[in-house]
Design a protein around this nucleic acid. Structure first.
Length: 487
DNA sequence: CGTCTTTGACCTGCGC
DNA sequence: GCGCAGGTCAAAGACG
């Protein structure tokens, strides 16, 4: 990001790695400090010079021994870290497998005997690449269950921040003349040649043309941020600024510059109520792989998007969610159907009034940020109204995770933990004791608890499969740097 | 000198 | 048709 946050020109991937190494360093330092306390040498109180010389020698020796211990400790920590990463990888694979199977099952159940040629309301969140366009397949006639499963799987596993909605034909035919580029293109495919001049002009661009095939969700992130923009890992270039009505703070317009033709844009504006709150709205889909550092935010937003999508919102355009979380990278959030109150933020976008908008409120409420750092504590709750019967969830969970693993894996793992700790139709309280430094057993225990919690949540609430898929796909995309999205 | 930001002008959509 | 507001463009200036 870049321009964002001022510090900007430094490639985010590099910064991210720096952060990671910093964490290791901090861990070492912390442990070192603890050891020094434990084995610290008390100052001599003797007046005898000989004895003081001997003591100096002893101090020297003990210091050496201490150094040796510290080295060993560091080695152990390194191994521990490697082990954690390894465990995480295997966990990830397990989730991946479970999600895949569950998704297939659910799909069979959801479409048991319906018209096989009827296309389900596919919602595809794409990880920074153009989706595989399953919509309106020409081979709809031979759409077997397996092929549908594959499509569903694709949709489920291609989640990302830049959620793209594979609009159903019903939605495409929605009688709104300002649906924007995407809908117009849909109409074009359907044979409608009444394209506005602007649209025709833009369609010249291949990249944009690809964008026109999908519906794009808007992701709105509210976070407390002192810097002009939030550092989300992407590179942005400011192309405009405007004073929006009702807010004295100007709204800045940014364009993704990671790739020359990337259509992703974002708007940054300070909240009128609280100037310390930065409201960032993302729109569009990256057409390039994302920097690794961008995937954390991607995992958060993609999960939120998947929440929205799992609520079959595709058929109910204009509905917005309000997602609140107390951790930047946590998937914990509460979703509020804002359909009645119009979209909570940036609802007055004339260009895309029908775009589903997901608002992530990352501003920490005072009540939940009391004793722990924002990065190791987050609470979540999810409520949904009858507008989304399929996602009528009610849960609340609180998780305390160690910040000792707040690397790219740790955050996403936390994400999974937080989101999966949520249970359908019942409330759960999952408290993870903070990992004690140098206590591998507790770490293992906490990890096990987390694993159990995740598994439980997966099996108890199928709707979270999408969330898991979102987070996992984001992680995988980020790890492989193959493709990811966010912005 | 190249890149990025700033900022006024312009375009477009919407409501009256 | 007109005015308003949001969004974008592009020239000019700043900066490294």
């Amino acid at each position: 990001m870049d321009t964002i946050g001022g510090a900007a020109t430094v490639p985010r991937s590099i910064r991210h790695e720096d952060c990671f190494s910093d964490q290791k360093t901090n861990m070492k330092v912390g442990i070192r400090g603890e050891l020094l306390q434990d084995h610290g040498v008390k100052p001599s109180s003797s007046n005898n010079e000989d004895s003081s010389n001997n003591k100096e020698e002893n101090v020297h020796k003990s210091a050496k021994a201490e150094m040796g211990e510290l080295r060993e400790e560091n080695e152990r920590l390194k191994k521990m870290l490697q082990q954690v990463e390894k465990d995480y990888q295997s966990l990830k694979l397990r989730f991946f497998d479970i999600v895949r199977r569950e998704t297939s099952k659910k799909y069979e159940y959801s479409f048991p005997s319906s018209d096989e040629t009827e296309e389900p309301e596919l919602v595809s969140l794409c990880l920074g690449r153009i989706p595989s366009k399953p919509k309106k397949d020409d081979n709809a006639s031979n759409s077997s269950k397996s092929s549908r499963d594959n499509e569903d799987l694709k949709a489920g596993l291609t989640l990302g921040l830049d959620s793209k909605f594979q609009m159903s034909t019903e939605l495409v035919s929605n009688p709104s003349r300002d649906n924007g580029l995407e809908d117009v293109a849909e109409e074009d495919e359907a044979g409608d040649t009444r394209l506005p001049l602007k649209i025709l002009k833009r369609n010249i661009d291949d990249e944009v043309a690809q964008q026109t095939n999908v519906k794009t969700a808007r992701i709105c992130v509210r976070a407390r941020c002192e810097t002009p923009t939030m550092n989300d890992g992407c590179q942005w270039r400011k192309y405009g600024q405007k004073i929006a009505k009702g807010n004295p703070c100007p709204r800045a317009y940014y364009r993704c510059t990671v790739a020359p033709a990337c259509p992703v844009r974002k708007q940054v504006q300070r909240s009128a109520e609280d100037m310390s709150i930065l409201i960032t709205t993302y729109e569009g889909t990256h057409n390039h792989p994302l920097p690794v550092s961008a995937t954390s935010m991607a995992s958060t937003t993609s999960a939120a998007a998947s929440m929205l999508l799992s609520g079959s919102s595709a058929s109910q355009p204009g509905v917005g969610f309000h997602v609140s979380a107390t951790q930047l990278n946590g998937l914990s959030f509460s979703l509020h159907d804002s359909s009645r109150t119009k979209q909570f933020y940036l609802a007055n976008s004339p260009s895309s009034p029908l775009l589903p908008t997901i608002t992530l409120d990352l501003t920490t409420p005072p009540s939940t940020s009391s004793t722990t750092t924002p990065f190791n504590r987050f609470s979540s709750s999810f409520t949904s109204t009858s507008t989304f019967p399929s996602t009528s969830l009610n849960f609340s969970s609180t998780a305390v995770l160690s910040n000792g693993y707040q690397n790219s894996y740790g955050t996403t793992l936390s994400n999974l933990g937080s989101s999966l700790g949520l249970g359908k139709q019942h409330q759960e309280q999952v408290m993870y004791q903070p990992y004690m430094e140098n206590n591998h057993h507790q770490q293992a225990a906490s990890q096990q608890a987390l694993t159990e919690s995740l598994t439980k949540a997966i099996t108890s609430d199928p709707s979270f499969k999408t969330v898991i898929a979102a987070a996992i796909s984001s992680m995988m995309a980020g790890n492989g740097s193959a493709s990811a999205s966010s912005s």
